[in-house]
Computed example of a mutant assay.
Amino acid sequence: MGPNDRHQYKGVLNTTAGVLPFMIKQKSGHVVNTSSIAGLKVFPGLSVYSATKHADTALSDGMRMEFCQPRRYVGKI
């Protein structure tokens, strides 16, 4: 595990948790998370990185189902 691997998912989760209450309160906003093909396919030597990117993808998909309404959007690149 590299020094940044343990922070890959935490940053996305903490940032999203920080903005989501404001989006819900104002009934509008956009969250766009950046993922990677490594979230869909595991490559040798990148298993931890792939796991964090899979978690990013799952979080974006789950948030889209739970929180998206007119004027509130969740996307992933």
Rank of each mutant, 00 (worst) to 15 (best):
G75I: 02
Q69H: 08
S36A: 14
P21A: 05
F43H: 12
T16Y: 01
D56Y: 02
G45P: 12
K25F: 05
L59S: 03
K27I: 12
G75H: 02
T16H: 01
N14G: 03
G29V: 07
I37P: 11
S36L: 12
V12Q: 00
F67C: 05
S36V: 14
G29W: 06
V32C: 02
M65W: 08
S50F: 12
H30S: 05
K41I: 15
R64M: 10
R72K: 10
A58P: 06
K53N: 06
F67H: 06
A51P: 08
T57R: 07
P44F: 14
V74A: 04
T52D: 03
A51K: 04
V48H: 02
N33M: 02
E66W: 12
R71C: 06
G2D: 09
P70D: 14
K25M: 03
N14Y: 14
L20E: 00
L59P: 02
V74K: 00
D61Q: 12
M65L: 13
I77L: 02
G11F: 09
G45C: 10
Q26Y: 10
A58E: 06
T15Y: 08
D61T: 10
Q8M: 08
P44C: 09
G2R: 11
G29H: 03
F43W: 07
S47P: 10
K10H: 07
D61A: 09
I24G: 02
S35F: 04
L46Q: 13
G11Q: 09
Q8K: 07
V42L: 13
A58H: 04
K10A: 07
L13M: 07
G11Y: 09
V12M: 00
S60T: 15
R71H: 07
R6N: 11
A17V: 11
M63S: 00
V48I: 04
G2Q: 11
Y9A: 03
R6F: 12
A17M: 10
G62Y: 04
I77E: 00
Y73K: 13
A58D: 04
V12D: 00
H54D: 09
L46E: 10
P3E: 14
T15N: 12
N4L: 14
F67W: 06
H7N: 15
R72W: 03
K53H: 07
T16M: 01
G29P: 06
T52E: 01
G29C: 05
G39C: 11
S28R: 15
A51H: 06
K25W: 03
N14W: 13
H30A: 01
V32F: 04
T16P: 04
V32M: 06
G45S: 08
S36G: 15
M65T: 14
L59W: 01
P3Y: 10
V32W: 02
Y73M: 14
D61G: 09
K10F: 04
K53S: 10
K10I: 06
L13T: 03
P44D: 13
S28P: 07
T16K: 01
V19H: 03
G39R: 11
G2P: 11
N4T: 12
K53C: 08
A38N: 14
F22V: 13
L20H: 01
K41T: 15
L46T: 15
N33Y: 00
D5I: 08
H30G: 00
